[in-house]
Design a protein around this nucleic acid. Sequence first.
RNA 1: GCGGGUGUAGCUCAGUGGUAGAGCGUCACGUUGCCAACGUGAAUGUCGUCGGUUCGAAUCCGAUCACCCGCUCCA
Length: 559
Amino acid sequence: MSKSTETMEKIVALCRRRGFIFGSSEIYGGIGGFWDYGPLGVELKRNIKDCWWHDMVRNPPPGPDGRKFQMVGVDCSIIMNPKVWEASGHVGGFADPMVDCKECNARFRADQVYSLFLLKGPSIEHLRDAVEYNASHPKDHLKPEIEVFACSVEANSVTETLDVAGDVVRAASKARNIGKYKKFTPETKLRGVSSRSGTLFCTTEAGEDIQVHVEALATDDSATARPCPKCHAEDSLTESREFNLMFETNTGALQDSTSKVYLRPETAQGIFVNFKNVMDTTRVKIPFGIAQIGKAFRNEINPRNYTFRSREFEQMEIEFFCNPNESKMWYEFWRDVRIKWYESLGIQSDKLRPREQGEDELAHYSDACTDIEYMFPFADEPQELEGVAHRGSFDLMAHGKASKGKETAFAVLDDATKERFVPHVIEPSAGVDRFTLATITEAYSFDENRASPEFMKFHPRLAPIKAGVFPLVAKDGLPELAEPIYADIRKHFSCQYDAKQSIGKRYARMDEAGTPFCFTIDHETKEQGTVTVRNRDDASQEKIDKSRCLEYLRDKLGL
RNA sequence: GCGGGUGUAGCUCAGUGGUAGAGCGUCACGUUGCCAACGUGAAUGUCGUCGGUUCGAAUCCGAUCACCCGCUCCA
């Protein structure tokens, strides 16, 4: 077993032992992809959400130009009119048809095996012929087969497929003489294909990166013989099956096709759908942001890695609306703000990585996206904590068109420039559960020289319990001295009183809960009015006056 | 969905056909008093589930379920 797996197992064990996280429905054998937070976990998660709301919504940092901007919140319903998900592209795009190979058991997303489908008619040679034919007859219509991207069984490499695909497109562009294809020359390099959006990513002769949309990209089951991309067995692929990643349910007592609704797969759409409501009822002006924290649901095919990929999870999302001229600036602003936020809560910067997504992995709505990734112990590569996406005006235009009949329905007027535009949107979308897991793995510390070798070094703002209050012994009047101190602190901070067992065990328990400070009321409290403060991180002790406990905590926690 | 692994107390695990166990943790009482102290005692189990073989099954066989790991997938 690898060291990182071992660490992860210790973390999972501690989380269960101390009541951070339980598997959902455990007594019935559990249910994959769902998790429950216990008494300590819920405090931790609540602190994370409170910090985010405080730091992003109520006290957002100054903008890139020093300008202040407004942030407001909403809390939208999880179930919305299903048209929302049609307009947003989730109904079409979120349901991925999958095919399995009956020979080698490999599974592929149907629209991602485009390059290795054998379609009716053309082989590579046919296509090459067609390319030549069309090249020599530029005014003629294309041969029908050239409308289709394909490769034959002989084309075993993606490179070869792309070569031919490139030829096809170049020929097509020449034949059609369409302006936007003019940049294609024999030297054009095809770097990748996004079958989802039907986009080709190319580098031109001049080294310029361009995108071309292709309408006739064949991605369906029209093949007569479809070799498996992996083992090349013929006719081994199953019919494509829908793996709808959205949870479906029904409204109303009667269930029929008209009652079908979805559990939201992201909180963002609630914000877009309420954009006009917020504009009309709140005195916000572009640029401004709308924030929401809430649950979202995705039928992940294979939930793994503890709570990292759950089917029910919580998001903290901002949709920041700005002038398209300034969207790049705000995109970079939010990306940097969000990274700093994680660092401010104790995530080591060398475990954080901003990763700019490649063109071919961008979602259908996204112009640019930076994943903020964290190096979890369970993976070799950093994993996504948050995506900061430049969504352009995609969502507002899509909802404008679908709900009001025109894409510019949600355009706004800039008072200064008298310019009308549909705002661009920057979306920092963070996973609450993923960050909770990151804080847990980050906090987990092991030092065999300590009396309590395992301890959780939570950032003080996130610690589920801020302080312990212990009478050294449960007699001699010490509990009577400790109780008022506890009563005082608990009014302001999450705090635990414990008079049971030895002081060492109590410290150790607090170490596993990640409590930063413990106040011990001892005999000197009686005689000199001092209490002993014990620090979680180095087990050091100091004496302070018993009246200063709350003040000490406020000071040390910075709260 | 495929392959591999694992299911016994809250946790870690022992138990290869004959009464269900240990350590840790938890709780109580006592002793003690500044880093998981000590003593005594207690609670906690459909041995994942169902079926079969057997006089007798945690143990052998079959099936099934769940979880973990790998593959696949993750808009």
